[in-house]
Design a protein around this nucleic acid. Structure first.
Lengths: 235, 235
DNA sequence: CGTAGAGTTGACGGGAATCAAAAGTAGTGG
DNA sequence: CCACTACTTTTGATTCCCGTCAACTCTACG
């Protein structure tokens, strides 16, 4: 069960300025006139511990979230337990906003994390009169749409190596650009994101290391020793 | 090359009432106050012959489209020719609306088809003051987002049989509910939608027929002889 | 030190891809 | 109407990539 801490509005506004992210929405210069303004009237801050479910598939989608710190995975399950991870969300990303009345995915904390929750009704009502906000919501949806489409190409038409390399490059793009990248997720998470098994992911990473493309300094610390060759693999 | 026929506004308004579809947007009761109103100021009607490209990946996305009749596929290509079909669009569906400045997919006519094209700039400007319209655009994006997410689950975590059956049921849902469903696409299209090869699709259909689940009355005419069993296969 | 969970590695098998060829279908023109 | 061609679809034989099963290693933690 999630540890949830509702915080007063004073505290919320103290937290908000720290939300520096790289999501499509936040890149917009006019961000402060949109969603962030909503915070003072509608947002509240929550904490979730690692592996806690934030919401489940089928639950009413009354709130959506933005990550302040930590990381989250959104995923779907088949009745027999097979899992497909749709996306990994990091600091600044928004998740859980739905078209219909209920969540179509589950969301779980990859690590301990802090999120802001927004009441969807409130935000949608505000969007009706706030052009900037409504453009942000549209942009969120379009961004996720293209991301899911790219993901489908990856899942449908790429080999195991191509999948793993594409994942690494994608994650590196969103990570602070130090020499090594830090994975926030387990091999199982990577496998379920790529439509592979944990063994295949592991084997592929080992192979890439043997081919001097990467270096596994620690289990979840990867250094690109030959970025050009990696990029070439994704054609 | 597409046969494109620009038609006067008189003719457009004559065509518009015939656009009866089943897309998410059109199900809204208030549709006539939104996109359809734009038609008189911004839409024009175009025809495309079978297999014509409507737009290509990377081209500027100045216009988007709604299908009046016929069907369209949207897809992505890898440099070596591998293709992933994102979706099949039918009468009433909207496609080609993008987040950025260029198309992220290609669109090709599955059959001869008629579409209405909208200037994105114009529609977006109108959306700023038209709440109904802006909600429609948001809804379009959210709808495609969830569709692409479901597609990813299909591609990542289902077997060949499950994929083919899921495709058949999905297509049947959108088809007129007569006894047999008519496929608008080739086996190659189905394969590229499901991340399979043409041979596997063909073999799977044959197997389903041997198992008395379906009946291939003609190559592109399929009858469900045991719908319950089919549905059970998708768990 | 001992246990539990995550990750790696190996052996093996199966499901889908590949390669190849036959059968069906449609369009063309004599 | 039928031969001829081009294309789509089906079917068969074979290959191979990745999944499955199993054992082992590594790390974290009490």
């Amino acid at each position: 069960m999630p540890t949830s801490l509702a915080i007063s509005h004073d505290q919320v506004s103290a937290v908000a300025p720290a939300v520096i992210g790289r999501s499509a929405l936040q890149k917009k210069a006019d961000f402060h006139t949109g969603l962030e303004r909503v915070l003072s009237t509608s947002g509240s801050v929550l904490h979730f511990m690692q592996d806690c479910q934030i919401y489940g598939e089928g639950e009413p989608a009354e709130t959506f979230f933005k990550i302040v710190s930590g990381a989250v995975r959104t995923c779907k399950f088949l009745s027999d337990g097979r899992r497909q991870i749709d996306a990994f969300q990091i600091e600044g990303d928004i998740f859980g906003l739905e078209a219909g009345e209920e969540h179509r995915l589950s969301a779980e904390a990859l690590s301990d994390c802090t999120v802001i929750s927004y009441r969807r009704r409130v935000v949608e009502r505000l969007a009706a009169s706030d052009d900037v906000l409504s453009r942000q919501l549209f942009s969120y949806a379009m961004h996720n749409m293209t991301r899911a489409q790219d993901h489908a190409l990856l899942l449908g038409r790429r080999s195991a190596v191509e999948k793993v390399v594409a994942f690494l490059l994608e994650w590196a793009d969103r990570s602070p650009c130090t020499g090594t990248i830090a994975l926030a997720m387990t091999r199982q998470d990577i496998a379920d994101y790529l439509g592979l098994t944990i063994e295949t992911v592991s084997r592929t990473l080992s192979q890439l290391e043997r081919d001097s493309m990467i270096e596994l300094s620690a289990v979840r610390q990867i250094r690109f020793t030959n970025p050009a060759a990696l990029r070439a693999l994704t054609s």
